[in-house]
Each structure stands twice: as structure tokens, then as C-alpha cells.
């Protein structure tokens, strides 16, 4: 027996209690900050408790005190050794205007890859439909796309009543939730070493490519552009960004080219994944509104030029946002010099 237990406990107990009180406060208040003196005291108490635990480790007859100290040291360890930046109070404007576009740009290569995979799908889908028009049911598994595009356009343009009357909000909510679910799945499937994400992006591309070819061949390019561009500029971009996040996750799972453990790789991208998918959700809320309240109305209700202009305006705004927003102005040569 290397310690006098009675004396040991009577001397150390007040320090353990003090540490326990500080931990309780820290756990109850997410944003509690301590001044230097308090931090030093907290650190001292942690080290003292850790040292007590080490000393008590040799004293087999005291499991209860050992468990108590283990619990204290474990809780304090989490607070003291956490080197990741503690989240500051959330500012939605800063997050949207700075954090989101910056995160997007930081992983632009993953976005480019996401676009490339989708484009391969577009080309494949387009060729497949051009070569075998009977494959439409497989390439575009939606009932309203199965018929002849000219018939659909004629029907939409001659509609005398609003077919979405009394259903617009409901339809909009359905689109938002469904598309967000698709985006989340696209991200989540990154955990399959990105295979699932690639599959989702490719199949999205296939569908898009076959729709484009089907309508362009039928001479309905204006209808198609006016129908897809207003909501598609946000919706398709959002799915591509979800793909970007999924590819990032997949890359972290595979871990090529980095001398880091899986845990370190995951830790380095986790904040970025959350930022990207949250931004995607916002974009899809907007896309849901536009698709339900705007995209579904065609000429003569809304002229195609107006719909296409609106879509182009949105797309240009989106590109500008991701390109410029949140950039710190680069110092000019004269400013940079000491």
C-alpha cells in the first residue's frame, strides 16, 4: 500500500469537489468563458485529479473513489484538451454571406468533379434517348414526361384553369422536403467511399440529359428552358453542391494522399460538410417556392422570355455569390509593403 488512504482522501476531497463544481458550470452553460485565473485554476485542479487517479490506480481496494475520479478526469479532459475552435454565437448573416461561399470555394475541386460526373450522366442520358427513344420509361421514370413533349406543351399552353390552384403551398412544401431529402442522401452516400454519391449524380445527369434531348428534338427548347431554368438554377446547383459534400466525405473515408488517420480526416471536414449541406437546404427552399409558384406557369400566363430572363438572372446571381461573396479584399501592392 503506497498511500495513506484516510489522509489522502481528506486532503484531496476539497479539490475534487471544486473541480466538480467548475465542470457542472461548464456543462450547464455552453458559452461560459473563464478568465485567465479561473482557467489556470481549472487546469491545476484537472492535473491534480489526474495525478490522484494515477496514484489511486495502485490502490486496488478503492474502486468507488477510482470510478468517481475517472469520471471527473474524463469530463475535465474533454473540456481541457479540446483544441477545435469553440463555436461562437451563430450569426446567420455572416454564415450565409461569408462562411457558406468561402467553404464552397475551399472545396471547388470537389464541386468541379461533381459537375463533371453529372455532365457524363447528361451526355449518356442524351445519347441513350437519341439512340433508343423507347427507353424513355427507364431514363425518365415520371409519368408526366412519358408522352410526346409537343402534346404536353400544347396542353400546358392551352390550360384555362390553374391546375395548382389551392395546392401551391402544399406542392411547394413537398418539393422542398423531397429535394432536401435527396440532397442529404447524396451527401450521406459519400460514406460508401463516394460510390453512392457518384451514382446519384450520374443518375441525375442521365435524367436531365434525356429530358433535354427529348424536348430539344421535339422543338420545344423555349418551353424546356422556361420550365427548368427558374427553379433548376438553384435546384440543380444545390444537388451538385450536395454531391460536392458527398465527394468530400468519400475522399475523407478513402484518405488518399494524406498522412492522417480516419478520425483526423473526418474531423478536418466535418464543419465544412455541415456548412455545405445547410446552404444546400436553404437553396432548395427557394427552389421549392419558385418551382411551385412560378416554373409551372407557362405562356401565355408568363411569357417564356420572362421565365428565361428570371432563370438567367438567378443563375448569374448564384455564380456571382459563390465567386465573390465573403472574399476579403486583397491588399494592393502599396498596402502590402511595410
Amino acid at each position: 500500500m503506497i498511500i495513506d488512504l484516510t489522509k489522502f482522501i481528506s486532503v484531496e476531497e476539497p479539490f475534487w469537489r471544486e473541480l466538480e463544481e467548475i465542470l457542472k458550470k461548464l456543462e450547464e452553460r455552453q458559452y461560459l468563458s473563464m478568465n485567465l485565473e479561473e482557467t489556470e485554476r481549472f487546469h491545476y485542479l484537472y492535473e491534480r485529479a489526474a495525478s490522484d487517479l494515477a496514484r489511486l490506480g495502485t490502490f486496488a481496494s478503492e474502486p468507488e473513489t477510482r470510478r468517481y475520479l475517472e469520471s471527473l478526469v474524463g469530463r475535465a479532459y474533454g473540456e481541457i484538451h479540446e483544441s477545435r475552435q469553440k463555436s461562437k454565437r451563430f450569426n446567420p448573416f455572416t454564415w450565409f454571406l461569408v462562411t457558406f461561399p468561402q467553404t464552397f470555394r475551399r472545396h471547388f475541386r470537389a464541386f468541379a468533379l461533381s459537375v463533371a460526373i453529372t455532365l457524363v450522366g447528361v451526355v449518356f442520358g442524351g445519347f441513350a434517348l437519341a439512340l433508343d427513344p423507347d427507353a424513355k420509361a427507364i431514363l425518365m421514370p415520371f409519368e408526366y414526361l412519358q408522352g410526346n413533349p409537343e402534346d404536353r406543351v400544347a396542353l400546358e399552353e392551352s390550360a384555362e384553369s390553374d391546375r395548382l390552384a389551392g395546392k401551391k403551398a402544399n406542392f411547394s412544401a413537398f418539393l422542398m422536403t423531397h429535394n432536401i431529402q435527396v440532397a442529404v442522401t447524396t451527401l450521406a452516400l459519400g460514406v460508401t467511399w463516394a460510390a453512392g454519391t457518384i451514382l446519384v449524380l450520374f443518375s441525375t445527369g442521365v435524367m436531365l440529359g434525356s429530358i433535354i434531348v427529348d424536348y430539344v428534338r421535339a422543338g420545344q427548347t423555349a418551353f424546356l428552358t422556361g420550365w427548368l431554368l427558374p427553379h433548376g438554377s438553384f435546384e440543380i446547383s444545390a444537388i451538385l453542391i450536395a454531391g460536392q459534400a458527398g465527394l468530400l466525405l468519400g475522399r475523407a473515408m478513402i484518405g488518399t494522399g494524406r498522412r492522417q488517420s480516419l478520425r483526423q480526416r473526418m474531423r478536418s471536414i466535418s464543419n465544412d460538410l455541415v456548412v455545405l449541406i445547410s446552404g444546400v437546404a436553404l437553396m432548395l427552399v427557394w427552389a421549392g417556392f419558385v418551382e411551385s409558384f412560378f416554373s409551372q406557369y407557362h405562356q401565355p400566363v408568363i411569357p417564356y422570355w420572362a421565365k428565361i430572363s428570371f432563370g438567367i438572372f438567378e443563375l448569374a446571381g448564384l455564380i456571382l455569390f459563390f465567386w465573390k461573396s465573403g472574399r476579403t479584399p486583397s491588399p494592393t501592392a502599396s498596402q502590402a509593403e511595410p
Binding site: R84, A188, V191, L273
Partner: peptide, 21 residues
Amino acid sequence: DAEGLQLQFSQIVIRNLLRAA
């Protein structure tokens, strides 16, 4: 946290989003 550190918000979001997979 699997290393005994503080649980971060991003970790909570990711583990819940990946329920989809």
C-alpha cells in the same frame, strides 16, 4: 466524441444526417 473530447455541433449534425445511409 470517440476521443473523449467535447462533442461538437458538426459531429451531431453529421451522425444524424448519415442516418439516411
